[in-house]
Design a protein around this nucleic acid. Structure first.
Lengths: 220, 220, 220, 220
DNA sequence: TATGAATGAGCCTTCATTCAT
DNA sequence: AATGAATGAAGGCTCATTCAT
């Protein structure tokens, strides 16, 4: 039930052996995450990644093959990281109402704390999911989550605290979406609505609203 | 009550006089919308825009100044276009329940039919709203919509069909978000969930779900 | 003896008939002189010339053919203008000492007042005199001046106030050179020597120095 | 007494370490000198410089930043090169008359052998000395030369072989000018005067003339 | 393992020039 | 006589990628 420790890999290069090499690889990955997230795939610069990682540019190619493969690795890591935290919630142990509230809040909070993840997703969709399509395990990664969602909904309906007939997939998209959109579009929204969206207080209010919407909807 | 149909402009260049020039300008704008939306700002190619517009590359610079300014013009046009359609809904003439349903459905449908708009927004947020900040009237463009939302909520609460105390801004973000996220992330979602999201039937189901969520939540 | 009223022409186009056309042509020529002199041939922009002349760019091509021909016309005009003023000095009527002094001072002053002429010459030499080679009358233009110089030197030597055996061509080059170099290189000189060169007082001092050098040299 | 042989540098890029890199840098600099001198700044082509240097265009930007900075580096090098040779004359060791003659001849000869230097100066003045203004040490570079000139003049006056009261700055400008103008305007002069100026014999005659003028002028 | 140097394709932008009215 | 619109070639500069050590 715990998060799998499997590291999803896409690089064609062999796993480096030495600790020093491992550290270099790690720094490149971190730098790449930052660069890709803040400038998009096309806007990201390999030079910049190397500089930020304090590594030689050649190492990027040695470890990851090319820019495309590096992107895929970064993307896959980001997915895995989120799922790892999501699994750690252990929502199946909670009563339906609390389980759902925790899922809602977690999604908003995680997204707010990881805008790179949001940026990565948007970029990947710009590419029509082309890179992700080359990653095998993504689908499997999400199966347990949907199972969890379905179980919570069923239990809630059985206990009479949730309405029946709710599609777990639709609801999952909605829960993720109301947080994702808020964070992803924070800059244009801030300008249109003329308010700050990412202050602790603003996030608190958004959290309350999201919970109210989902749980209000789920009322029988 | 309707917003003025003013076309928000950002180009520093004088509007061309002749009909032929106007047509060229129009073609460039359409081509740029397509190119920017499908590849992002950094990934878009000016050459490609010119080719698609069947215009000389030089004309892009004559009419719009440079790639940045062209982006801003495209973005501003996209916002204005959506707002124009949104205003044409005349939701204030409808009973609260129907008014809200129409807003929800419209947002999903418009977004689904205009994935370019979604792509544009994501890109602009990648730039942290830097370009939009240079456009003056965007804020004003959205004031009437929020007024409408507020009026509908108030009327619904007064008539006892909606719960009270709903924040119109939060709800607006939610309504747009549940549609936007669905469309914006259709490719990664399709891979994760292993379902088609943009078929007529799938959209129908999503529409029903969105309405159920918003109106279910608004129940007193 | 008076300046010839001949307009040296290089343009392949027929002389325009109407007064309006003539004025446009004149404005283009003035604008071109300014643009060529301040940015050089390669740095000059046809658009800029048209804008400054308040004329349509097409007119430049109608009147002058192309950028090259325009350059040649401007250059030839500049030469003719200087020679016209030079002839108006009537130095042959003066005693040798005064005649020479007047030539020296005139060259410095004219050059200082017409830095465009200096810039034009430098540019043309950058092109190894390629354009000027296509102008027929330049050589003839300078014959009378050298004749004058020779006459003054001969008279001075005969009267015993000048040394004998001075080559008029070498001296002419020297007289023009000590003024031309001062003006042409005013900016680099000012930085190297850390002094202002073009103030009235500085020009006065330079004038005195040039006269002292030439006349000091010519002493028997 | 000699000026330090410090190489005045303007490039913002780090000096390359390896010998190979240094050679490439050197080839680019030589090629740039040729290209700039023969076509001017605006007329020079970066592609052409790269081709002539047998280097990749990208290297130019890696080593020098951009075309502007490359120009400044070339210009500063040219100045330093001339000053280095000028210092090697050791004119302070000679009697005044010979010292002055050597300065005069050197300037003519150096200029005749380095028309690139002349072309560079003219271009820089076309830019109103804008680039040179960004170089720090140029002023200092010329201080020792003026000191030398002053010393020679003073000694000559004290020994009674030179006239008194000669301004060393004015004279320096004149000495450089009579050579510079001759070389800089060789093409237009050749056409106007219909003589060859750069043959060994012609240079010999010019040399004699320049010496005669300066030393004739300096007679007490 | 790591690095400095190099490369060629391509990108945004500009230019002199011509077309059509 | 004059003009607005259009064009193709090229120019400066940048990028992902590879070579050689």
């Amino acid at each position: 039930m715990n998060a799998p420790s499997q590291t999803v890999e896409a690089s064609p290069s062999p796993r480096p052996a030495s600790a020093r090499a491992h550290a270099t690889r790690r720094r490149i990955l971190d730098a790449a995450l930052h660069e890709f997230a803040s400038k998009g795939f096309a806007g990201a610069r390999v030079d910049e990644i190397a500089a930020r990682a304090d590594a030689n540019k050649r190492m990027i190619y040695a470890y990851f093959g090319n820019k495309d493969a590096l992107w895929l690795t970064v993307l896959t890591h980001a997915y895995a990281a989120k799922r790892a935290e999501e699994n750690a919630l252990h929502v199946t142990d909670l009563p339906p109402h609390q389980a759902m509230a925790r899922l809602v809040s977690f999604n908003l909070r995680y997204t707010a704390e990881h805008p790179e993840f949001v940026a990565l997703l948007n970029q990947e969709n710009l590419h029509r999911g082309a890179y992700l399509a080359r990653s095998d395990d993504i689908h499997d990664l999400y199966l347990p989550l949907l199972d969890t969602m379905r179980a919570v909904l069923d239990r809630g309906a059985a206990e009479g605290v949730f309405r029946a007939g709710v599609d777990p997939v639709q609801l999952y998209i909605t829960i993720v979406g109301i947080g994702h959109f808020y964070v992803a579009n924070q800059f244009t929204l801030a300008q249109i609505l003329d308010t700050a969206l990412m202050t602790p207080q603003a996030l608190e209010e958004r959290d309350a609203h999201c919970n109210a919407v989902i749980l209000g909807y789920l009322r029988p």
